[in-house]
Amino acid sequence: MSDTIAVASSEVRIRNLHKVFGGREVLSGIDLDIPAGSVTAIIGPSGSGKSTLLRCINHLERPDSGYVEVGGEVIGYRPEKGRLRERSSRDIARQRASIGMVFQQFNLFGHRTAAQNIAEGQLAAGVPAAAARARAGELLKRVGLAGREGAYPSELSGGQQQRVAIARALARDPRLILFDEPTSALDPELVGEVLAVIKQLATTGITMAIVTHEIGFAREVADQLVFLDGGQIVDRGAPADVLDNTDNERARAFVAAVL
């Protein structure tokens, strides 16, 4: 990494982001700002780089060039004499603690209860066990699962497991939450209960970036809609502008096919 950097002005600031897998450029010069307290929905065809973009934001994937800032701090790197140098693994872990992430496949520990899954990160950060348990109970109530503290993932539906995963992402009061197609692994009848929780979160002022194929949901919840294709942002703007009035032929065809 040898990119020069500038002063941040948004909660999330992405500049000239490139990522290559096996000789194929998955992200090709992404520039994106996500204002504090806003919701950005990211749509596009499979293989367009949407999930990779999210994983670069919290440094689960290491960019090949370019950089990501969250809250004015470069993620994974530290500025040094106008250049970016890799941070220590401990420092990167500290940065990730302020960025919650909800995955497609829930990623819950099967041998731990709902409350234990939620408390895990707090305990690792040194939060007393009693406080971590209390926080887990509060968050389960918030996502509509009050009284399910002792349930194991195998005893929960897919929608309930994803709601536990959302509660886990909230446990350390992140400044940003990333959702990577949070309903794609759910049966259709369970999608609504997860989207309802995310809609409620969108009213709280937390900054959110959501990769989704739920176009109606994106229209309703997002402040900004980003259409990604071939590793590039080909359209962005207010949801109605991108979904109804785009001049981009690829975006228009994708939206028509999804709807």
Rank of each mutant, 00 (worst) to 15 (best):
T207N: 03
D187Y: 11
L170N: 00
Q200D: 13
K199S: 14
M208H: 00
E189P: 05
A167K: 01
R148P: 10
Q161E: 15
A185I: 11
T203C: 13
E155M: 15
T203N: 00
G150T: 09
Q161K: 14
R148T: 06
Q162G: 11
R172S: 12
E193M: 11
A136G: 03
V197N: 02
E149Y: 03
A134P: 00
E193V: 09
A196S: 05
A209Q: 02
A130F: 08
L139C: 01
A151E: 10
V191N: 11
V143L: 00
R175V: 15
T207K: 06
E181R: 10
E149A: 13
A167T: 12
S184F: 06
L170H: 04
A131T: 12
Q161T: 12
L145Y: 06
T207Q: 09
L139M: 03
F179A: 03
E181S: 08
A167C: 00
V191T: 15
E155S: 09
R135N: 04
R142E: 05
V164T: 09
G192C: 02
A134Q: 06
L156V: 05
R172Q: 12
A171H: 11
A151N: 01
K199G: 13
K141S: 13
I166M: 06
Y152G: 00
Q160L: 07
P174Q: 05
Y152H: 05
K141R: 15
A169M: 08
L156N: 04
L156R: 02
M208P: 10
M208Y: 00
P182S: 11
A196K: 08
M208G: 01
L156S: 00
S154Q: 10
L190M: 04
P182M: 13
T204W: 07
A185C: 09
T207Y: 08
G205E: 08
L145S: 03
T204G: 04
L145N: 03
A165R: 04
P174D: 05
A130K: 15
M208A: 01
I210L: 08
R133N: 07
I210W: 03
Q200T: 09
E181Q: 09
A202C: 12
Q160R: 07
S154K: 08
S157V: 11
R148K: 06
I177P: 10
A151T: 02
A209S: 13
P188E: 07
R175Y: 05
E155W: 08
Q162M: 14
A129P: 09
V194M: 03
L170A: 03
E138Q: 06
L195V: 09
V191Y: 11
D173L: 06
S157H: 14
